[in-house]
Computed example of a mutant assay.
Amino acid sequence: MAHFDPPTVAADQLDATLARQGYAVLGAAAVRAWLGLDAAALTALQPAWDDLPPDRYLKDGGRYRRRRHGCFVVEGEAVRPMPERPHYQPVEYNALHGGMRRWFAPLTDALVAQPAWTRLLQRTGAVVSALKGAQPWYVEAHPFRIDTTGGIGRPTPEGAHRDGVDLVAVFLVGRHGIKGGESRVFEADGPNGQRFTLTEPWSVLLLDDARVIHETTPIQPQTEGVLGWRDTLVLTYRAGGFLGD
């Protein structure tokens, strides 16, 4: 299987790259520089991915996805947790699971209490403010584990899509014993696209959701019969309110 390296940029090129082409990728070292955090601070977040309940809403009958969900409002350096609410996407953004109000287990207190968690939300908020103008951002946070239960796991069972927000950030938290999981980004209104595989823990793909669509290809176990998984943190930022309000 062909493997394409991600088109990473330096942290100080993030805003310009995102504005120019609608997406940007930072490697792990650039993420640490961008966040002003060391590797240990990010590693401290990772135990949360071992405590994700199964997603009971998968319409393809799969049992390969585990997740939690939390909501925040980010305005400048201020990060306000919001009450639990369902995750909602219209069918025009998610043909498979759109139109449902899906209640997922909340983020754990241990995760949200980590200093790196607040820093992630603040710095990603600064990126979307640079792109779209400073304002309050309505943020949904989704820790995901996609595993190879049944022989295959589908990070985006809905296919190539937009999320109906202003910015999407996909952090790769880790990969274990898998092949596949290629990220694909396409112009929403043009022919151009990129394909690459994130492999470094705490690398990130940031997407201007109005300009590009994205998907991630299925994963399979590296060794037949041995469970593998791919952990990600997806943050979405939207102006004006949460989808479904």
Score class of each variant (00 low, 15 high):
residue 167 L to Y: 00
residue 85 R to E: 01
residue 163 D to H: 01
residue 148 T to A: 12
residue 23 Y to Q: 03
residue 229 W to C: 11
residue 152 I to E: 05
residue 205 L to T: 03
residue 222 Q to E: 15
residue 226 V to Q: 12
residue 127 V to N: 02
residue 179 K to D: 14
residue 70 G to N: 08
residue 2 A to Q: 09
residue 69 H to V: 10
residue 134 A to M: 09
residue 193 G to Y: 02
residue 197 T to A: 07
residue 70 G to D: 01
residue 166 D to N: 09
residue 8 T to D: 03
residue 237 Y to P: 02
residue 159 G to A: 10
residue 83 P to V: 05
residue 109 D to H: 10
residue 157 P to I: 02
residue 134 A to G: 07
residue 229 W to L: 05
residue 55 D to H: 05
residue 105 A to E: 11
residue 28 A to E: 11
residue 172 L to A: 07
residue 226 V to E: 12
residue 77 E to G: 08
residue 210 A to S: 14
residue 138 Y to N: 11
residue 236 T to M: 02
residue 186 F to N: 09
residue 66 R to T: 13
residue 126 A to R: 10
residue 195 R to A: 11
residue 196 F to T: 03
residue 202 W to C: 09
residue 56 R to P: 10
residue 12 D to L: 10
residue 176 H to K: 15
residue 1 M to I: 08
residue 46 Q to T: 15
residue 9 V to K: 00
residue 16 A to G: 12
residue 146 I to D: 05
residue 96 L to F: 08
residue 109 D to I: 05
residue 46 Q to K: 15
residue 17 T to F: 14
residue 215 E to L: 12
residue 116 A to S: 15
residue 133 G to W: 03
residue 92 E to H: 14
residue 3 H to M: 13
residue 82 M to K: 03
residue 212 V to Q: 01
residue 136 P to M: 08
residue 208 D to Y: 07
residue 23 Y to R: 01
residue 196 F to P: 00
residue 205 L to W: 06
residue 112 V to Y: 06
residue 53 P to Y: 01
residue 208 D to F: 09
residue 146 I to N: 08
residue 165 V to H: 00
residue 4 F to I: 12
residue 68 R to G: 07
residue 235 L to G: 07
residue 14 L to M: 04
residue 9 V to T: 04
residue 160 A to E: 08
residue 98 G to P: 12
residue 71 C to S: 14
residue 163 D to E: 07
residue 184 R to I: 10
residue 226 V to P: 05
residue 3 H to L: 11
residue 128 V to D: 01
residue 135 Q to V: 14
residue 21 Q to L: 10
residue 173 V to R: 00
residue 104 F to W: 01
residue 215 E to Y: 08
residue 169 A to Q: 08
residue 149 T to I: 14
residue 96 L to W: 02
residue 127 V to W: 01
residue 188 A to M: 06
residue 194 Q to H: 14
residue 42 L to Y: 04
residue 185 V to M: 02
residue 92 E to V: 14
residue 179 K to H: 15
residue 71 C to H: 06
residue 241 G to N: 00
residue 201 P to F: 03
residue 92 E to R: 15
residue 163 D to P: 02
residue 104 F to G: 02
residue 45 L to H: 00
residue 17 T to N: 12
residue 12 D to N: 11
residue 235 L to N: 00
residue 190 G to Y: 00
residue 23 Y to N: 06
residue 43 T to P: 04
residue 23 Y to S: 01
residue 176 H to D: 15
residue 235 L to C: 10
residue 30 A to L: 14
residue 42 L to F: 01
residue 182 E to Q: 10
residue 79 V to E: 00
residue 157 P to T: 02
residue 202 W to V: 02
residue 2 A to P: 07
residue 117 W to C: 05
residue 146 I to F: 08
residue 83 P to K: 00
residue 80 R to V: 12
residue 121 L to G: 04
residue 211 R to S: 11
residue 108 T to Y: 09
residue 1 M to S: 13
residue 229 W to A: 09
residue 51 D to G: 12
residue 38 D to E: 07
residue 242 F to L: 04
residue 202 W to P: 03
residue 63 R to W: 13
residue 149 T to P: 05
residue 29 A to L: 10
residue 153 G to A: 09
residue 39 A to G: 13
residue 195 R to P: 03
residue 122 Q to F: 07
residue 94 N to Y: 02
residue 137 W to R: 04
residue 1 M to V: 08
